Simulated assay, not measured.
Amino acid sequence: MLTPAQISQYHHDGYLVLKNFCSKEEIDKLYAVALEDGAMKKNALDLNDQAGKKTKLSLWFTPGNDVFGYLTRSNKVIQSIAPLLDSDAPVCHFHSKLMQKEPRVGGAWEWHQDYGYWYKNQFMFPDQLISIMVALTEANKENGCLQVIRGSHKLGRVNHGFAGEQVGADAVMVENALQTMELVYVELEPGDALIFHSNILHRSEANLSDRPRWSVISCYCSQSNIAYNETSTSWKVPVDIVPDEAILTWEAESLSNADFLKKEDDPALKETGWEKEVAVK
């Protein structure tokens, strides 16, 4: 359970780091599955940044009876995010994604807010959307760790346009935010977790090191947060919570049963027309 101080810090900063959120044994198992499960590789999407470098991600919606499903449905995850959502409605799982930044070739993520994407899904309430990232490998400046602008979630949603195959925030607003608020490099050890608000501005640089940076990011919403332009259904189904020990001790299925996203089905990557008016840094 989060302390009152941690809850206050999240609302003030827009993010919260939880050290040693997962044990070494849990991370070893999750990382092994990430490397070895054929469904992860088969369903990985390549997204080009503005420089043409590629970042791989595999994204699925319904949390299943695989090891990543046990993580996203675990009591410790749900108990950590539920107090931070602006609703008493049940917590639902929107989607999870395995982020795969390979050494020397892993691309950057431009400055953006997650709600810059999810606005196109027509979710109504950004304060009822949240993400938790668990580091599977070390994340630092050298291999392109996440950067956040502390407190930028209080800006509300800023306009977004396209940056390569990504959606990026308006460059003027990003520059204004950087002059007003603190830039933070969120360096993590394997097993650390980062919880962050859907409107916090964040980015990551390309991985030019000789070490991979892999993480799993799970995104949640309150059941009261209706999405009027989302064809998946997990976002409105309360999470079937499992005990934390499920990650290590329960029999796990392959991710081949997961409902992975196909790039052509992502509404966030479809033009609406107004993106062309937005300059992206």
Rank of each mutant, 00 (worst) to 15 (best):
Y70K: 12
R73P: 04
K76A: 11
K76I: 10
V77F: 02
I78Q: 06
S80T: 13
I81G: 06
A82H: 08
P83M: 11
D86R: 12
S87N: 04
D88Y: 05
P90G: 11
H93Q: 11
R104P: 02
G107R: 05
W109R: 09
G116D: 01
Y117T: 05
N121V: 07
N121G: 12
Q122F: 10
M124N: 11
F125A: 15
P126S: 11
I130W: 01
M133H: 00
M133P: 00
M133L: 14
L136H: 02
L136I: 05
T137L: 12
T137F: 08
E138V: 13
N140V: 03
K141I: 05
E142V: 08
E142R: 08
C145S: 12
R150V: 12
G151M: 06
G151E: 01
G151Q: 04
L155R: 14
L155W: 06
G156R: 11
Q166W: 01
G168C: 08
G168Y: 00
A169F: 03
V172A: 15
A177Q: 02
L178F: 01
L178N: 03
Q179W: 01
M181P: 01
E182R: 10
L183R: 12
V184Q: 07
Y185S: 15
Y185W: 04
E189D: 09
E189H: 06
G191Q: 01
L194Q: 01
I200F: 01
R203M: 15
S204W: 02
E205C: 14
A206V: 07
N207E: 04
L208V: 13
R211Y: 06
P212A: 13
R213K: 14
R213D: 07
S215G: 15
